[in-house]
Write a protein that binds this DNA or RNA. Structure first.
Length: 161
DNA sequence: CGCGTTTGACCGGCGC
DNA sequence: GCGCCGGTCAAACGCG
């Protein structure tokens, strides 16, 4: 077929690229924000982010989360992760997976949750917890497109720190 | 054989 | 106190 004008596939450069949809939302110890609830709440009432407060997270390291759109669940952030759990969550068709950084002495964790409710099909919520105490393995060039998207979104919209 | 995933058990917090 | 729900453990398994 040489007249392929509208193949059903999405856009080029895509299959394992992630388009960043939201700026990273930071969660610190003081205002007790839960990024995983961001994904859940946008699942529940299909609305904007609903901030869930007054849960105890004393001693929890800081977290941040953002959404991307991709066919793949895992976005390559340059670190190596080992999966240590997967759970079905309420009001979601897709399970949530739990990853830990493979470096010993580094206990950074992340959650990956795909949301399928509402029209937001193919949106993945990635939540990071903690700060790496070792350098990234991959070259920075491979991460630059992703970082540029995040930086753009951070500066062009108002975020809460 | 080393390393990562899978998967059910387990556990602790929270609400009723 | 009990049951639901989310997070973690760990043994078995898979794969290079």
């Amino acid at each position: 077929m040489e007249g392929q004008e509208t193949p059903a596939r999405t856009d080029p450069q895509h299959s394992h690229s992630h388009d960043v949809l939201t700026p990273p939302i930071f969660f610190d110890l003081h205002n007790s924000l839960f990024p995983s609830d961001v994904g859940l709440s946008s699942l529940n009432d299909d609305e904007d982010y609903m901030i869930i407060k007054n849960k105890r997270n004393i001693g929890k390291p800081c977290r941040f989360a953002f959404q991307t759109r991709s066919e793949e669940d895992i976005l390559d952030d340059g670190y190596r992760w080992r999966k240590y759990g997967q759970k079905a969550v309420k009001n979601s068709n897709f399970p949530r997976s739990y990853y830990r950084c493979t470096h010993h002495t580094c206990n950074v964790k992340k959650q990956i949750q795909r949301l399928s409710k509402s029209k937001e099909n193919g949106v993945v919520v990635t939540t990071y917890e903690g700060i790496h105490n070792h350098p990234c393995e991959k070259l920075m060039e491979t991460l630059t497109p992703l970082l540029k998207q995040i930086q753009f979104l951070t500066t062009s919209t108002h975020t809460l720190f």
